[in-house]
């Protein structure tokens, strides 16, 4: 059998193995490939930096589930570290049922690094509310309409941090971390209606879809996939805010190598496809 034909018939398990190795090996032998910082990621970082410390809060919406956590968790960690180190206040909420669990897990992971950070003073975790559009709109009127209490059942009126926070006017920036089309809802109801500033952290699957909104300025910035998360980690590290283990940055080596392997496979696959096709043609014409 012709070599290219063999390639075409290659058992897909070998490809799985190849990809697994391409991801696995850089973990053991880190290459520290350089990463460039893109403008959308820098814009999110700058927007957070521009919030006055101990001033109006940053609202992080964790609208994702465990299935997209590897991309979005590092963004949540980096944002929380950024805010907690620089004494910026944070509100967390979820419009997606599992999102509440993700936010809680993120807090549980980050809070031990910041023993001084207290619920109700430095951050407020509002929990989950069903009814995506209705919640986003009600935040424009009063946070208390959708979230009379925080996730732990404490009335918002009794939380010092929420004293001056009523609606979008009092929220410096919203960052939506989402694995779905929820950012569009934020654009339609929070940005278009209330003029809220919105940054997003999205999975790479949906990043391409969101460029028009970035381009039009409806998103002030965007973190796209693991790369976006790694960029944010680098940005906060460059400022000397944290020395914690940077999950996304570590993963990017594997990402780059896996991409190279996939590129090679695409090229080989295409050559094999056309070569075996021309081979077939020759076969029929010689008949």
């Amino acid at each position: 059998m012709n070599f290219w034909k063999k390639v075409m018939k290659l058992n897909r398990r070998w490809i799985f193995l190849l990809i697994a190795l391409a991801v696995f090996i850089p973990f053991l032998k880190p290459l520290r490939l350089p990463l460039s910082i893109t403008k959308p990621a820098k814009d999110v970082f700058d927007a957070v930096e521009s919030i006055p410390p101990e001033g109006p809060p940053l609202l992080i919406a964790t609208d994702y589930a465990p299935s997209t956590a590897p991309e979005l968790d590092p963004m949540l960690y980096a944002l929380l570290r950024h805010c907690f180190v620089t004494k910026r206040r944070v509100m967390l909420l979820a419009l997606y049922p599992q999102g509440a669990g993700m936010a809680q897990a993120g807090l549980d992971f980050i809070l031990p690094e910041f023993p001084d950070v207290k619920s109700g003073e430095d951050y407020v975790f509002l929990g989950y509310q069903p009814g995506v559009q209705a919640v986003v709109m009600s935040l424009g009127e009063d946070v208390r309409l959708a979230f009379p209490t925080d996730a732990y059942g404490v009335s918002l009126d009794s939380l010092p941090m929420m004293e001056h926070v009523r609606n979008y006017d009092d929220i410096a920036l919203v960052v939506d971390l989402a694995g779905s089309s929820i950012p569009i809802t934020w654009v339609i109801y929070a940005v278009a209606r209330y003029g809220q500033r919105l940054g997003v952290g999205v999975t790479a699957v949906s990043a391409a879809q969101y460029y028009p909104y970035l381009n039009s300025g409806q998103f002030i910035g965007m973190l796209g996939g693991l790369k976006g998360a790694a960029e944010y980690e680098i940005l906060i590290q460059q400022k000397g805010y944290t020395e914690a283990r940077q999950i996304a940055t570590i993963g990017m080596d594997s990402q780059s190598i896996a991409h190279l392997v996939i590129l090679a496979l695409i090229i080989i696959g295409n050559i094999a496809f056309f070569a075996s096709k021309s081979h077939k043609k020759k076969g029929t014409s010689s008949k």
Binding site: K118, G120, E121, V154, L159, P160, E163
Partner: peptide, 14 residues
């Protein structure tokens, strides 16, 4: 505890 903190904070802020 939270209520106490809130009152303290309010006193400081008003």
């Amino acid at each position: 505890m939270n209520v106490l903190l809130a009152i303290l904070f309010l006193m400081q802020q008003t």
